[in-house]
Amino acid sequence: MDPFVVLVLCLSCLLLLSIWRQSSGRGKLPPGPTPLPVIGNILQIDIKDVSKSLTNLSKIYGPVFTLYFGLERMVVLHGYEVVKEALIDLGEEFSGRGHFPLAERANRGFGIVFSNGKRWKEIRRFSLMTLRNFGMGKRSIEDRVQEEARCLVEELRKTKASPCDPTFILGCAPCNVICSIIFQKRFDYKDQQFLNLMEKLNENIRIVSTPWIQICNNFPTIIDYFPGTHNKLLKNLAFMESDILEKVKEHQESMDINNPRDFIDCFLIKMEKEKQNQQSEFTIENLVITAADLLGAGTETTSTTLRYALLLLLKHPEVTAKVQEEIERVIGRNRSPCMQDRGHMPYTDAVVHEVQRYIDLIPTSLPHAVTCDVKFRNYLIPKGTTILTSLTSVLHDNKEFPNPEMFDPRHFLDEGGNFKKSNYFMPFSAGKRICVGEGLARMELFLFLTFILQNFNLKSLIDPKDLDTTPVVNGFASVPPFYQLCFIPV
């Protein structure tokens, strides 16, 4: 058959498939802009700032609406009420993970971030239990974070109060905490193996944040037939998995079943207990991918939040002064901060919360999916439909947070200066898919920041009023603009 005829037939089939998918069930789905064949609503979305586009569309179609990214149908949730109703009140029905062709290629359905069903539930339950087990290797997770915080302070001392970009050092600290939990080992910041790991993690975040990856996920045929950065992403992930597998083999040879040292040991012990169960989800494949998931999810998000926190503290020296006064009063100079201190430091706690609220790190979270046909607000959402959640619409709700575009710790303080919780605080998402490392991340943010401010004054290279804190939105995360500062020993 003539190649031209084959091409026309293929394009015609794709067009018909697109029209059929977009028209099927439209009477039951939430409203939304009319999609174009094949490309859907992509032309109506700013790929570099999806969150802003969703906010604009919500003003037209309401808090629940339908979009098509290519052939992929998505239902968008915008605003606290619908997000709570879906992710919390109907948590089980909305607990699936959205379709990610690239991740599915890399992870093969294993791990904790992109798995679904029984596998996801069992691996998540085990990971939560293990991360909360403060007795691994007779050292609590808090001990590990405190140790890394001391190392971080010593690295900052080496800058000798000269101007520096904190990106690298602030990236090393949370990565080392995860390494300590998974591998029972922290690395020197100049260790070549550690630097290679950091390089792969950072490069992957840069790649994932590009519009090209959005295109690959919406048109998965590209993955096999086109060159691009997605190939580098898959190569980096394969490198990390190979490295983790080597460490798993080392653990198998040296493990003491009665004295687990780290996450890998705990997983291997669980595998041993379930070795007679042919349906067990505790396999080497799941261990390797879960460890890679924890490394990827637990490094860049925390380091970016820390980097943004220091920029905001530079911009608002009056806030920094209040935090340091609270540190001096509650902790002093002669001991290290600990998590028990947080309950006695409402202002510092409010500042950490406000940093996370203000920066809105992951504006749309990772997409969910419905696990069955769901009736939601008089609409029928078919099983498997991807759910896109606007966390921006919750964290920047102007009824809950007056002047949401302003950095103001009073958003989390009552009139008496006591810490005030808010149900709208969802930087880790909400419901059954809430970030498994939430507790660890909150511990790291509090301890790293208090250790830094206990030991250093922060000095800006320019007038604080002239510092730009506008986030650089890159399609996946909101990151701070480049800046330098000086760490002046107190």
Rank of each mutant, 00 (worst) to 15 (best):
V5H: 15
V6W: 15
L7Q: 04
S12E: 04
L15E: 01
W20D: 01
G27A: 14
P30K: 00
G40Y: 00
D46Y: 05
K52A: 11
T55D: 15
P63L: 01
F69L: 13
F69P: 05
L71R: 15
E85Y: 06
L90I: 09
L90A: 14
E92A: 08
F94L: 04
F94M: 06
S95Y: 02
G96D: 06
A103S: 09
A106K: 07
A106H: 11
A106Q: 09
N107R: 08
N116F: 04
R119I: 07
W120E: 01
R125L: 09
S127H: 03
M129R: 10
M129V: 15
N133F: 06
G137S: 13
G137M: 13
I141F: 12
I141Y: 15
R157P: 00
P166Y: 01
A173V: 07
C175Y: 06
Y189C: 05
Q193T: 10
E203M: 07
N204D: 07
S209E: 07
I213Q: 09
I213G: 11
Q214P: 08
C216Y: 15
I222C: 10
I244W: 03
E246I: 14
K247G: 07
V248S: 03
K249F: 09
M255A: 06
M255L: 15
R261V: 04
D265M: 02
D265P: 00
F267R: 01
L268I: 08
I269H: 08
I269E: 09
E274T: 09
S280E: 07
I284N: 07
N286C: 04
V288D: 02
T290L: 09
T290P: 00
A291S: 11
G296L: 14
G296M: 11
T299R: 03
E300C: 12
T304H: 14
T304W: 08
L311H: 04
A321E: 13
R329Q: 12
M339A: 09
R342K: 13
G343T: 14
A350V: 00
Q356T: 06
D360M: 03
L361P: 04
P363A: 02
T364P: 01
T364N: 15
P367I: 04
H368R: 12
C372V: 12
K375W: 10
N378G: 14
Y379R: 02
K383P: 01
G384D: 08
I387L: 03
I387T: 03
T392N: 09
L395K: 03
L395M: 05
N398T: 12
E400N: 06
E405Q: 13
E405S: 15
M406Y: 10
F407R: 00
F407Q: 00
D408K: 04
G416K: 13
K420G: 03
M426P: 03
M426R: 05
P427L: 02
G431Y: 04
R433P: 02
V436H: 01
G439V: 09
G439L: 07
L440G: 02
L447S: 05
T450F: 00
T450M: 05
F451C: 15
L453H: 04
S460Y: 05
P464T: 09
L467P: 04
D468P: 14
V479A: 15
F482S: 14
Y483N: 03
